[in-house]
Design a protein around this nucleic acid. Structure first.
Length: 274
DNA sequence: CGTAGACCCTGCGCGC
DNA sequence: TGCGCGCAGGGTCTAC
């Protein structure tokens, strides 16, 4: 389920629990997620190292370790990263786990195996092929309507696809793309070539507000986030249109519709999105 | 070059 | 009840 807010809530939850602990070892139980899980790399860049800080870039969780190394985790569609007592039974799809010096275990479960895990020197992060092409962080300074308008120059295609393009901006997944477009009153199929300055500004603000609110609401369930096993770690946010086909739009009452962009479901209100 | 579509994988809910 | 189908919040690759 993770989009940017979920990864950010996970980061905030894990950081105080992990910093200062040390990675004592690891178990790789699947040969690969999206990419091969490389025990040689984990051994070289994680074993024996103390956790210094947790960071996030796009939907990647960055676990910075002492000695200038970083463990990178991406949850894909179905990944769950949880902190459990070391003697907790190994569960199905627990493809990777790190034993900690405190006795706990940082486990990554991922049934669909679209996630990723790798480690590298921290200095190589920016130039790494997973990160080099990534665009704006929507919750960082500099994300606004004028920058979106500039990035859209000369481009075609529906605005929803544009918003989800990681080369433009990162972290806006399928749920929050629909939600932000609804909040801004912009039809998801509208061509990026037919969006004026005011709409770009409204869209940028809507993205910021939708993501910020999701993080804030996730924060309310932070307590047992990382301790809990499985689903307890994930939170419910109030969504206006996503997965609400046929239900009334909370703003204008018209029935919400579902369509498809780039093989992904899109939900929108035909009444107040133009 | 940019964009659209297929695809990776497993689990779940729905309709028959 | 059992079963097949469609769909799922990720990203990347290929074909046009």
């Amino acid at each position: 389920m993770p989009e940017l807010p979920e990864v950010e809530v996970l980061r905030r939850s894990l950081e105080p629990r992990l910093v200062g602990d040390r990675i004592a070892g690891f178990e790789v139980r699947a040969p690969a997620l999206r990419e091969p899980l490389d025990p040689v790399v984990f051994e070289r860049f994680t074993t024996g190292r103390r956790v210094e800080a947790l960071d996030r870039r796009a939907k990647y969780l960055l676990i910075h370790l002492e000695g200038g190394a970083t463990l990178v985790i991406h949850l894909g569609m179905s990944g769950r990263l949880t902190l459990v007592p070391g003697d907790t039974e190994v569960e199905p799809h627990e493809h990777l786990a790190f034993r900690l010096a405190s006795g706990r275990r940082l486990r990554l479960r991922d049934p669909r195996r679209f996630g990723q895990a790798f480690a590298l020197p921290t200095a190589d992060l920016a130039g790494d092929r997973h990160f080099a092409h990534l665009g704006l962080e929507p919750l960082s300074p500099g994300f606004d309507g004028s920058v979106l308008a500039r990035l859209a120059e000369g481009r075609r295609g529906p605005v929803k696809t544009f918003l989800m393009d990681a080369r433009v901006a990162v972290g806006i997944g399928n749920i929050y793309a629909s939600e932000a477009l609804h909040r801004a009153g912009v039809h998801p199929s509208r061509s990026v070539a037919r969006i004026g300055w005011a709409r770009w500004e409204a869209l940028a603000q809507a993205v910021i507000e939708v993501l910020s609110r999701a993080i804030a609401e996730g924060g309310t369930t932070l307590n047992d986030f990382a301790d809990a096993d499985g689903q307890a770690g994930y939170f419910q946010v109030s969504l206006a249109v996503y997965d609400r086909e046929g239900e009334p739009c909370p703003r204008c009452g018209r029935a919400i519709r579902r369509t498809v962009h780039a093989n992904r479901s899109t939900f929108y209100c035909p009444g107040c999105q133009r």
